[in-house]
């Protein structure tokens, strides 16, 4: 599971950790019943307060995404269905951020939709702007 946190993201760190777990499920790098890193391991590698990781795991447990088994660690819940729940949920999060970014720039939803299609088409024809770092 690859997690990158950003202070510039504007969302609390525990929410970013939750999204990283969901993203792992959607990509397939995390599967049902897989173990997640321990609180100690993850907080150490991310250089965050262990409570932040616990907070993320607890919130994911409330959402039914993971199971905390005492003394054994945290695991992806066996019954998760990434395609049905996590994919649309993650997509909505990304959409929310894109909309906020658009409105900050004075753009409306229609502008954003048009531009998304144009950019996708442009990339299909290889106009060299596939990765602009965002």
């Amino acid at each position: 599971m690859k997690i990158r946190l950003s202070q510039a993201d504007g969302r609390p760190l525990y929410v970013q950790i939750m999204d990283a777990v969901r993203s792992g499920l959607v990509r397939g790098s995390l599967r049902p019943a897989d173990p997640l890193p321990s609180v100690r391991e993850l907080s150490s590698s991310l250089r965050v307060n262990p409570r932040t990781v616990s907070q993320a795991y607890a919130a994911l447990e409330r959402d039914g995404v993971v199971q905390v088994r005492h003394g054994k660690g945290t695991f992806v819940a066996p019954g998760v269905r990434p395609e049905e729940k996590e994919r649309p949920r993650l997509a909505r999060e990304v959409a929310r951020r894109a909309l906020a970014d658009a409105s900050r720039n004075g753009l409306a939803l229609a502008d954003l939709m048009t531009a998304l299609r144009e950019v996708e088409d442009g990339d299909a024809h290889g106009d060299g702007r596939k990765e602009d770092g965002r």
Binding site: V39, R40, S43, S44, R47, P50, R51
Partner: peptide, 12 residues
């Protein structure tokens, strides 16, 4: 960076 990692583990 190493210090922050050490502090995270220490807190855990």
């Amino acid at each position: 960076d190493e210090t922050l990692s050490i502090l995270s583990e220490h807190l855990a």
